[in-house]
Design a protein around this nucleic acid. Structure first.
Length: 499
RNA sequence: GGCGGCGUACCCAAGUGGUAAGGGAGAGGUCUGCAAAACCUCGAUGCAGCGGUUCGAAUCCGCUCGCCGCCUCCA
C-alpha cells in the first residue's frame, strides 16, 4: 500500500509501526459555526480511508478531535449572547447531524481540547524546563530557534526568508517572530483555567499534541487534515511534540485538497462557502459523498451544481442496474442453462474486479479510479443480463458480482442503499411529494403517493392492453410532469423519480 | 520575496516511462406500440506551448505561458 507523505513529498510504501495496527489522528473542526462543504470533504475522505484500512484487516485506532476553546468561539459567544461552552456544544451537535447524513462514522475517540487542560499544562511545563518555551506576562511561547528541524513539513528552510514577504504582525514581546503561543493568559471575563503561569487557555496547536500523546502515543502512524493545516498548525505540532518527547511524532502526514469556487479556495474569510446544510437541502447526501470521492483526495475540487447533478445521475445508473440484477436473481431457476461466453473468464472484468479495486485503493487511496472500476463492473453486469442468461450457473456468477459490488460499496460507504430506498430519498429531495406533506408525515405520505402511482400504472396497463396508446401516453406524460418517469420493462412497468 | 501545486476530449476525471480508465453531454444503431432504461458503434494520432533525454514520454529534465495555494484564522 502506498501513501503520499507530505513530510517527504513522495508516495511511500506504508508500513505501520506495529504490524497490523494503525494509530491515526485527524484534525477535526473548531466548533464556532456550522460546517461547509470543505469540512465535509476532509471528513468524508478520511472516513473512507479509515474504512479501507479496516477492510484491509488493520486494527485501526482512529481519533478525531474537536477544538472547543479558541478566540473564534469566544467571539461567537459574544455575538450570539451565549456562554462559550454552549456555543461549542451547539456546533458539535450540528457537526454530528451533518456528518452522519454524509455517512461519516464517528471516530473511535473524539476528544476535546478542554478535556485535556491538565495534559496540555504538563507538556508546556516540560517544554519550559527543557528550554524550548518561555513565559512572558502569563503567556507561554514555543521557542522556534530551539528546534532546529522546524520547517521540515512545510518545506520552509530559512526563517528569515519566511518572514520577508509574510503578513504577520509580530508581537514585540516574543524573542523570535516565529515563536508561537502555547498558553494564552485570559482577560477579565474570558474562559480561563488555572496554570503555573496564571489563569489562561491553551494555544491552538498544543491541544493536538496533548491528545495524540494521551490517546495514541509518542509516535503515531498517520496524522491527517486539510492542506491548509500544513503550516503553521502541523509544523508547530511537530516542533512541540518532538521537542517534548524527543521521539518522531508522526510517520505519515496526509493532507486533503481544497474545495474551490471559481478556482479560488472556499473559505470563511472570502465568504464563498456553501454549508453542508444548504447543499443537503438540494442534493441527496449520498450524491454529495460520491461527488467528493470521485476526485482524488489531494486534488482540488471545483464546487458547482453540475457535478452534483451528475453524481445523482451516476447513483441512478448504479441503482437501476442493481435493481435489474436483483430482478434477475429473484427469477425462478428453471432447468434451462444459458450464459453468454467470456463472462466468467479468470481475467474478465467480473473476476478481476476485486483485484482492481484493491489496487486502486492501495495506490494512495485512489477512490476516483476505484469508482471507475465499479462502473466497469456495472457495465459488464448489464451486458451479461442483456444476453438473457438463465440457470444456476448464471445466477451464481451474478450473485458473486453483486457481493463484490456491495463489498466495495461498503468500503466507500456509497452505493449501499436499496434501489427503493434511493427512490424514496429522491421523492423527498426532488420535492415530488408536496413539502408540507413530506415534512408532516413523511413515510405515510410517501406511501400514499406510491399507491397513487401504482394505480395509475395499472390504469395505463389496461389502456395498453386495449391498445389505447393515447390514454397510455397521456398518463405517462402526466406523471412525468409530476416528476415521475415510467419505464415499461419485461412483464411490468417500473417508475422512478426524474432527476 | 520564499515554498508548493495544477493545466488530459464539449464538461467532470483517472493515468508518474510502454502506446490515453470511468462518468456526463452528443451522433448513429439494437430493443420498444411509441418512449425510457440498458447495450453496441463513433468520438483526444494526442495530454497548455516549445525544446531535450530515451528504442519508447501525458508521465523524466529545461524553458515559456496561464491559473491556484501556503507564508494570518482556515478542512
Amino acid at each position: 500500500m502506498k501513501i503520499y507523505n507530505t513530510l517527504t513529498g513522495k508516495k511511500e510504501t506504508f508500513v505501520p509501526l506495529y504490524q497490523g495496527r494503525i494509530d491515526m489522528y485527524v484534525c477535526g473542526v473548531t466548533v464556532y459555526d456550522v460546517c461547509h462543504i470543505g469540512h465535509a470533504r476532509s471528513a468524508v475522505v478520511f472516513d473512507a480511508i479509515r474504512r479501507y484500512f479496516r477492510h484491509r484487516g488493520y486494527d485501526i485506532r482512529f481519533v478525531k478531535n474537536f477544538t472547543d476553546i479558541d478566540d473564534k468561539i469566544i467571539n461567537r459567544a459574544a455575538s450570539e449572547g451565549l456562554p462559550w461552552d454552549k456555543v461549542a456544544e451547539k456546533y458539535i451537535k450540528k457537526y454530528y447531524e451533518d456528518m452522519h447524513r454524509l455517512g461519516v462514522a464517528d471516530a473511535d475517540l473524539e476528544p476535546r481540547a478542554t478535556g485535556h487542560i491538565k495534559e496540555i499544562i504538563e507538556i508546556i511545563k516540560g517544554l519550559v524546563e527543557k528550554g524550548h518555551a518561555y513565559e512572558i506576562d502569563g503567556d507561554v511561547y514555543f521557542s522556534v530557534p530551539s528546534f532546529p528541524e522546524y520547517g521540515k513539513l512545510s518545506g520552509r528552510k530559512k526563517l528569515e526568508e519566511m518572514l520577508a514577504g509574510a503578513r504577520v504582525e509580530v508581537d514585540e514581546r516574543k524573542k523570535n517572530p516565529m515563536d508561537f503561543a502555547l498558553w494564552k493568559s485570559s482577560k477579565e471575563g474570558e474562559p480561563a483555567w488555572d496554570s503555573p503561569w496564571g489563569p489562561g487557555r491553551p494555544g491552538w496547536h498544543i491541544e493536538c499534541s496533548a491528545m495524540v500523546l494521551k490517546h495514541l502515543g509518542q509516535t503515531i502512524d498517520i496524522h491527517a487534515g486539510g492542506a491548509d493545516l500544513i503550516f503553521p498548525h502541523h509544523e508547530n505540532e511537530i516542533a512541540q511534540s518532538e521537542a517534548y518527547t524527543e521521539k518522531p511524532f508522526v510517520r505519515y502526514w496526509m493532507h486533503n485538497g481544497f474545495i474551490t469556487v471559481n478556482k479560488e479556495k472556499m473559505s470563511k474569510s472570502l465568504g464563498n462557502f456553501f454549508t453542508i446544510e444548504e447543499i443537503l437541502q438540494r442534493f441527496d447526501p449520498e450524491a454529495v459523498r460520491l461527488f467528493l470521492l470521485q476526485t482524488h483526495y489531494r486534488s482540488p475540487i471545483e464546487f458547482s451544481n453540475e457535478p452534483l447533478e451528475e453524481a445523482e445521475h451516476t447513483l441512478e445508473r448504479f441503482y437501476q442496474s442493481l435493481e435489474r440484477l436483483d430482478d434477475f436473481l429473484m427469477l425462478p431457476e428453471g432447468k434451462h442453462e444459458s450464459s453468454p461466453a467470456g463472462f466468467d473468464d479468470e481475467n474478465g472484468i467480473i473476476a478481476s474486479f476485486k483485484k482492481h479495486f484493491v489496487q486502486a485503493m492501495d495506490d494512495d487511496f485512489n477512490t476516483a479510479l476505484a469508482i471507475g472500476h465499479i462502473f466497469e463492473l456495472i457495465k459488464e453486469i448489464n451486458r451479461f443480463l442483456d444476453a438473457k442468461p438463465a440457470g444456476a450457473k448464471a445466477k451464481e456468477l451474478m450473485s458473486g458480482a453483486k457481493r463484490e459490488l456491495l463489498e466495495a460499496a461498503g468500503v466507500l460507504n456509497v452505493f449501499n442503499r436499496t434501489p427503493s430506498e434511493w427512490q424514496r430519498a429522491l421523492l423527498k429531495i426532488k420535492k415530488v411529494v408536496a413539502e408540507e406533506h413530506a415534512v408532516l408525515k413523511e413515510d405515510v405520505q410517501i406511501t400514499k403517493f406510491e399507491i397513487d402511482i401504482e394505480s395509475l400504472i395499472a390504469e395505463r396497463q389496461k389502456a395498453r392492453e386495449s391498445k389505447d396508446w393515447a390514454r397510455a401516453d397521456a398518463i405517462r406524460a402526466d406523471l412525468e410532469k409530476r416528476g415521475i418517469i415510467l419505464e415499461d420493462k419485461q412483464g411490468k412497468t417500473a417508475w422512478r423519480v426524474k432527476i
